[in-house]
Design a protein around this nucleic acid. Structure first.
Lengths: 108, 108
DNA sequence: TTTACATATAACCAAACGGTTATGTGAAAA
DNA sequence: TTTTCACATAACCGTTTGGTTATATGTAAA
């Protein structure tokens, strides 16, 4: 039920996740890493919490956030399965396709 | 530049892509497969076109849509790679966290 | 030429998004 | 106890999203 598209559909949230992959962070640490307000960050954290991509714990007056590895793994496999179904009719493996590197020059 | 999260972030659009994987379809065929109005479908098709996930061609009064396999593969690869990187690094830092024990009680 | 059909477009609506400022709350420090 | 600090919450704002209905346009069929 977690909507990974919603969760990852914003670059600030992806940036937050990239921070959290290094280890748990307090809300304060996250807020200080961005140029937007504390309530704006809190809204992003709430969306990540709703979609169960991160989890929250309390430590005194601090709120600590960490990546929910389990949900990300589920999302990863669901997406792999979906893209597999979409693409296998064309007998082209995504992995093979990407490894050929045919697309790298085209992106700008 | 295509925004894969935007393109794939709606289940109607993912369903449309699942239809198009079987082969090109006219707008009429797509509209008939859903319970929503023709203008609503057209909006979804426009978003998929903007993000270059599908392409459009004309045949008389019909408008024919087909999957842009190339862009779709790149798009999914980017998403999966991003999640994959989050998972791999998190495994490492989770291990670090366990080995270090609690370190967050002291404010400096 | 008239009619029917596939599609486009405009106007509207409610809800969600991403941000703001202002202010309340609760724990820790002084 | 008083103050400070981390965070929560409320109210507001402009834009986007996902849908609607009504209507215009362009091609094909009668």
């Amino acid at each position: 039920m977690p909507n990974v598209y919603r969760a990852l559909g914003d670059s600030t949230r992806r940036h937050i996740l990239s921070m959290l992959k290094q280890g748990s962070k307090t809300q304060k640490e996250i807020v200080e890493a961005f140029d937007i307000s504390q309530p704006a960050i809190k809204k992003h954290l709430n969306i990540l919490l709703e979609e169960k991509i991160i989890s929250e714990s309390l430590n005194g007056k601090y709120r600590i956030y960490s990546i929910n590895l389990y949900t990300l793994q589920i999302a990863y496999h669901e997406m792999l399965q979906y893209i597999g179904e979409l693409l296998d009719d064309q007998l082209v493996s995504l992995k093979d396709y990407v490894e050929k590197g045919e697309f790298r020059d085209e992106e700008k």
